[in-house]
C-alpha cells in the first residue's frame, strides 16, 4: 500500500515537472492530465474514493478540456493546420499514455488488494461527505453556488465578442458556447454530485 502511494506520488511529481517544462501547450496539458490522474490515485489510496472520482471527472476531465478548447481556439488561423498535424503524431501521445497505463495498472492492483489489506483505514464515504456538506457546510454550498455564478457571469461577459469586431473568428462562437455550456454542466454536476 505504502509503495503504491509513493509510486503514484512519484508519477504525479514527475509528470508535473515534465508538464511545466514542455514547450508545447498541448504536450504540457497531456502530462498535466496524467499528473491529475496520479493525484486521483493517491486520493483513492488515502481513503477518499469519492474525491478521486471527482478529480477525474472535473479536474482532469472538465477543466482540462476547457484548457484544450482554448488552446485550440487560440491557434485558429493560418498556422493552425500545420500545427495540428504535429500534435497528432503518435510520439506525442506515447509518453502520457504509457504513464497513464501504469497508473491504471496500479489502481487495479490497489483495488484488488485493498480488501485484504491489513491496515485499518478510515475511508470517507460519499455519504459521509454529503451529510456534512448539507449539515454544517450548507452555507458554504450556497456560497459556492454564488461563486460559480460569478464565474459564469464573468466568463460570459469577458468572452463575448466585441460588438463591432470583424467576423474573422467566425468559428469561435460555437466552441465558446461549448465552453460555457461545459461550465454550466460542471456547476450542475457539482451540485448533483453533492446530492449523491
Amino acid at each position: 500500500m505504502l509503495i503504491a502511494f509513493y509510486f503514484a506520488a512519484l508519477i504525479a511529481v514527475l509528470t508535473t515537472a515534465i508538464a511545466i517544462t514542455r514547450r508545447h501547450a498541448v504536450h504540457a496539458l497531456l502530462y498535466l492530465i496524467v499528473s491529475l490522474l496520479a493525484v486521483a490515485v493517491v486520493f483513492y489510496i488515502i481513503g477518499a474514493p469519492f474525491l478521486a472520482a471527482l478529480e477525474l471527472i472535473i479536474d482532469a476531465g472538465a477543466i482540462m478540456v476547457l484548457f484544450l478548447f482554448v488552446i485550440m481556439m487560440l491557434n485558429i488561423g493560418e498556422r493552425a493546420t500545420e500545427v495540428e498535424t504535429t500534435w497528432l503524431k503518435p510520439a506525442v501521445w506515447a509518453g502520457p499514455s504509457a504513464l497513464a497505463t501504469v497508473l491504471i495498472a496500479e489502481l487495479i492492483l490497489v483495488a484488488v488488494t485493498s480488501g485484504s489489506s491489513a491496515a485499518p483505514m478510515h475511508v470517507v464515504t460519499p455519504k459521509e461527505i454529503g451529510v456534512s456538506l448539507f449539515g454544517p457546510y450548507a452555507i458554504a454550498v450556497e456560497l459556492v453556488s454564488l461563486l460559480l455564478m460569478a464565474g459564469l457571469v464573468g466568463a460570459y461577459h469577458l468572452g463575448r465578442r466585441a460588438v463591432r469586431e470583424e467576423e474573422q473568428f467566425g468559428t469561435g462562437t460555437d466552441a465558446r458556447r461549448a465552453v460555457f455550456g461545459r461550465d454550466a454542466v460542471h456547476a450542475g454536476s457539482d451540485r448533483t454530485s453533492h446530492a449523491a
Partner: peptide
C-alpha cells in the same frame, strides 16, 4: 471529512477561476 469538503470547494473555485481566466485570455 472537512478536508475533503474543502477540496470540493477548491475544485469549484478552480473551475470558476479557470473559466474567467481563459475568457480573459481569449479576449
Amino acid at each position: 471529512p472537512d478536508g475533503q469538503i474543502m477540496f470540493l470547494f477548491i475544485l469549484a473555485m478552480a473551475a470558476a477561476e479557470v473559466s474567467v481566466g481563459l475568457a480573459l485570455f481569449l479576449q
